[in-house]
Structures are given as structure tokens and as C-alpha cells.
């Protein structure tokens, strides 16, 4: 009986330490974002605001550049996600349901592309984009994202497609449906959870992407949020309150999406990791 008790205490302690590690930095983010300017820089540091204020959030939202960054991020992430899903759905279907010469090699390349160091190829990618005269455009940034979001999405979708019995399509075909109809009417509806998971993950990746946005979007009005929030870092002083408020707003969309598809996403990721 007492042994059980010790176990329970150890477990509670372990949970407490874990949560402390996760939450302590987050507490500072929230605390600062609700402090007014004088409190932000007041010493000694107080862990919680003495007076709570929404001023930082108001400032973030009314900051013209922030709205532009948010808009840019949203456009890029949404279009990237949409295009990725279309291309990778076709790709994943082709790789799992058909046989063609070179299929295995290319599938290996899809898996291998997970491991490519994007910084290592940033120069040639930049030169391609600038060669097409697409720097400082949404199109340029989106193209540079597709190259790594599509393989990830295929990797996730493959498992979901394999989970759908071929017989379902075959029986639809016997009933006179064309190949496309069989895909559209039978496979696609069953794939909805998989598409949700892959879409969320791609959105998550492109929403927070930093390096290519830094390189390709040199014009301030075209920057996305992750590079844009660096605006608040001044040469001598960083306006922490507005920065953290903007950061919370920046993190918010992915939280909402994650909460919505958490189950399918975890299933997709672990499935992909186990089967390789």
C-alpha cells in the first residue's frame, strides 16, 4: 500500500516538473503581453502583471505592418496548403495504387527529401526564384514551399490511402464508374481525415516557415509573420509587450487547427514513422 503511495508521489512530482518546464517560459510570454510599458521594464521583475491591460494586443492589431504580415502569411499558407493537397493527393494515389517504371526509386526520393537540409539548398532555390523574377511575390515563396511540403504530405497520405481497401474501388468500377469517378466518389470521402491531417500539418509548416521567407521576401511589405515580428527587435531595446502579444496572435491559428485535427494528425505522423 505504501509502495503505491510512493509511486503516486513520484508520478505527481514528475508531472509537476514537466509542466513547470513547459509552462514557465510561456508564463513570461503571457505576463509581459498583459503588462503596460512601465511594468514591462520595472525592476525587480514581477511574475504577474499588477494591472492587466490589453494595450499590447490593441497595438499589435492596429500596427499596419503587422496586419500586412498576417495577410501575407495567411495567403501564402492557405494557397500552399491547397496546392500541396492537390499535388500530393495525386502523388500519393499514384505511388500506392499504380505501378510504373521508377516508382520505387521516386518513392525513396520522397522519403529522402524529408532529410534534405533546406539551408544547404537555399542559394540555388533563391537563384531559381529570382531567375523567374519571382522574388518578393507570393508565387515565388509558395513554389519554394511546395518542394518540401508535397513530399511530407505524400508521406502522411500514403498510409491513409493504403488503409482503404482496393476492393471498394474495384466494386465501384464494376458498377460502371470510371477510374476518376471511383477515386472521386469512393476514395476521396474516405480520405477526409487524412486530408485534414496532412492539410493541417502543411499549414503548420508553411505558417511558421522562416528561412525561405527571409531570403525570398526582401521587401518589407511582402514579409510573412515569422520574419515580420523581428520588427519589434530594436537596436537598443525590444518592445517585448507588443512582440509577445503579436506572437500569441501568430501562434493562435495553428492552435485552433491543431485542436481540430489532433487525432488524425497524430495517427498519420506515427503511422508514417512506424512504417517509414
Amino acid at each position: 500500500m505504501s509502495k503505491k503511495r510512493i509511486g503516486k508521489i513520484c508520478w505527481l512530482l514528475s508531472l509537476f516538473i514537466l509542466l513547470f518546464f513547459v509552462c514557465f517560459p510561456l508564463v513570461q510570454m503571457f505576463s509581459v503581453s498583459f503588462k503596460d510599458t512601465t511594468q514591462q521594464f520595472a525592476l525587480p521583475v514581477t511574475f504577474l502583471p499588477k494591472r492587466w491591460t490589453l494595450e499590447n494586443f490593441r497595438q499589435a492589431v492596429s500596427y499596419e505592418a503587422f496586419r500586412t504580415y498576417f495577410k501575407n502569411s495567411l495567403i501564402v499558407a492557405v494557397i500552399t496548403t491547397f496546392l500541396t493537397i492537390i499535388i500530393s493527393l495525386m502523388g500519393a494515389y499514384g505511388f500506392t495504387r499504380t505501378h510504373f517504371p521508377g516508382r520505387k526509386v521516386f518513392l525513396m526520393l520522397v522519403l529522402f527529401s524529408q532529410m534534405i537540409c533546406l539551408a544547404a539548398i537555399s542559394v540555388p532555390v533563391y537563384r531559381i526564384i529570382s531567375g523567374l523574377d519571382l522574388t518578393d511575390t507570393y508565387t515565388g515563396l509558395i513554389i519554394s514551399y511546395l518542394a518540401y511540403t508535397v513530399p511530407v504530405a505524400i508521406w502522411l497520405l500514403k498510409g491513409f490511402i493504403q488503409g482503404i481497401p482496393v476492393e471498394l474501388e474495384e466494386s465501384a468500377r464494376v458498377d460502371g464508374a470510371s477510374k476518376f469517378q471511383a477515386f472521386y466518389r469512393v476514395v476521396l470521402p474516405l480520405l477526409r481525415p487524412g486530408i485534414g491531417a496532412a492539410g493541417a500539418y502543411v499549414f503548420f509548416l508553411s505558417w511558421q516557415e522562416f528561412l525561405f521567407s527571409l531570403i525570398i521576401m526582401t521587401d518589407k511589405s511582402k514579409r510573412t509573420l515569422p520574419t515580420g515580428i523581428m520588427d519589434y527587435v530594436g537596436q537598443y531595446e525590444t518592445s517585448w509587450g507588443s512582440m509577445m502579444a503579436s506572437s500569441i496572435l501568430l501562434a493562435l491559428p495553428v492552435f485552433v487547427i491543431f485542436a481540430a485535427v489532433q487525432k488524425q494528425l497524430v495517427a498519420g505522423l506515427t503511422d508514417g514513422a512506424v512504417k517509414g
Binding site: 499535388i87 500530393s88 495525386m90 502523388g91 494515389y93 499514384g94 505511388f95 495504387r97 499504380t98 505501378h99 510504373f100 517504371p101 516508382r103 521516386f106 526520393l109 520522397v110 527529401s113 534534405i116 539548398i121 532555390v125 531559381i128 513554389i143 519554394s144 511546395l146 518542394a147 518540401y148 508535397v150 513530399p151 505524400i154 477510374k179
Partner: peptide, 19 residues
């Protein structure tokens, strides 16, 4: 095979050109 090639072509082109 043709369907497979057509379906996977965009992916393969993207990977070759940009990765």
C-alpha cells in the same frame, strides 16, 4: 503505368527542380 506517371509527375518535377 500511364496514370501513375501522370499523377506523380508534378511531385517528381517539383522534387527534381527544387530539391
Amino acid at each position: 503505368p500511364l496514370l501513375g506517371i501522370v499523377f506523380t509527375a508534378p511531385t517528381i518535377i517539383l522534387m527534381i527542380v527544387l530539391l
